[in-house]
Nucleic acid binder design. Structure first.
Lengths: 195, 195
DNA sequence: CCAGCTATATATAATTA
DNA sequence: TTAATTATATATAGCTG
């Protein structure tokens, strides 16, 4: 079409090719639009020039058309991402199951699934943990005791509220880390409200 | 174009519309292909007729073109699925973190983050679990002992390998559930290879 | 609903500015 | 380059079978 018929093969002359590309692309989009208007069709055209530039034309939202296309054609457009996600899911689930199992063992359940050597190790772990918790509770109780004791001591001396300085030099004889205690006093009931 | 110029609006006559749709669609695809051949462009055309039928034409794999489109245009084609996945991920992660925290507490770590009442409960849980594990180990050891004892007994009587029946009627005097033991013998080293 | 036909409308290759 | 011009090639609306 034009002054002369042209062969249907790639146009060698770069300049001519560019000109033809622009003319024909514009026309293609126009025709696509006419199809949409005249025949009430949904049309999407995507063109990448040989220089990599993107041109697009759609009768409505390109996203909607491509989603419809994906649904109708069954083409999974995000297959790679999807499979990657599935893989990560599996990893998470496995990890979760392992943690669950471990927790159950730590609670003395499902012990049948453990070999004796693991049982041995589990018992050691549990006893160590129980000791740590016990120690921790003792420390907490000692602090509480120290706090009460200190209050009694100062009340006995008629000082009313204890100041920080008073606490540092208080005659409580044990080696508890009282300075730290002053900065962050143990307040059980405050913590309880958070759980 | 044709015998007479037509208005650029939807063709009312259903039959005419269908005929025009087919003619124009075919031509659109032809033009798309010419653009591809003449100008070395990548072209994809998607058309849905007003009856919902899908027609498509692409210079190469439609999937590849649409993926390229998605990349270049930044259009997230699977946004809904993607967001749903992200949501599930967050749930999994949260659950994992909770389990992790709980496990650490069960191992006597991070105890500072627990209020005293929880410490109390934790200690009870640990001690109960330790007791269960201890009991279980005792049962295991007793079974082992019974097994050895039984072997000694039968060797003393010159029977060689102990048969199942022999195990059931063996004169081991304790009340251990030996039948179960026979079905699933405790094999520590077999299990060890799996961990 | 398809396939031709044909008169016109469009598209466009080559050319010119 | 890019934009107009123009001679021709295509596309196609309305027919007919």
């Amino acid at each position: 079409m034009g002054r002369g018929k042209i062969e249907m093969k790639a146009i060698e002359n770069q300049c001519n090719r560019q000109v033809t590309f622009n003319k024909r692309r514009k026309c293609l989009f126009k025709k696509a639009n006419e199809l949409f208007v005249l025949c009430d069709a949904q049309v999407a055209v995507i063109v990448f020039s040989n220089t990599g530039k993107l041109f697009e034309n759609a009768s409505s939202s390109m996203k909607r058309i491509l989603e419809r296309y994906s649904t109708v054609s069954g083409l999974q457009l995000c297959q790679n991402e999807y499979e990657h996600m599935l893989c990560e899911f599996a990893t998470h689930r496995t990890e979760n199951e392992k943690l669950h199992d471990k927790l159950r063992h730590m609670q003395g359940e499902d012990l049948d699934s453990l070999p004796p050597s693991e049982l041995d190790h589990l018992q050691q772990t549990l006893e160590l943990a129980a000791r740590k918790v016990r120690d921790r509770r003792v420390v907490g109780l000692e602090r509480k005791w120290a706090f009460l004791n200190q209050g009694v001591y100062e009340n006995q001396n008629g000082y009313g509220q204890a100041s920080c300085e008073a606490a540092v030099v208080s005659p409580v004889g044990n080696a508890l880390p009282l300075p730290e205690f002053r900065v962050q006093p143990v307040q059980p009931n405050l913590h309880n409200t958070e759980y």
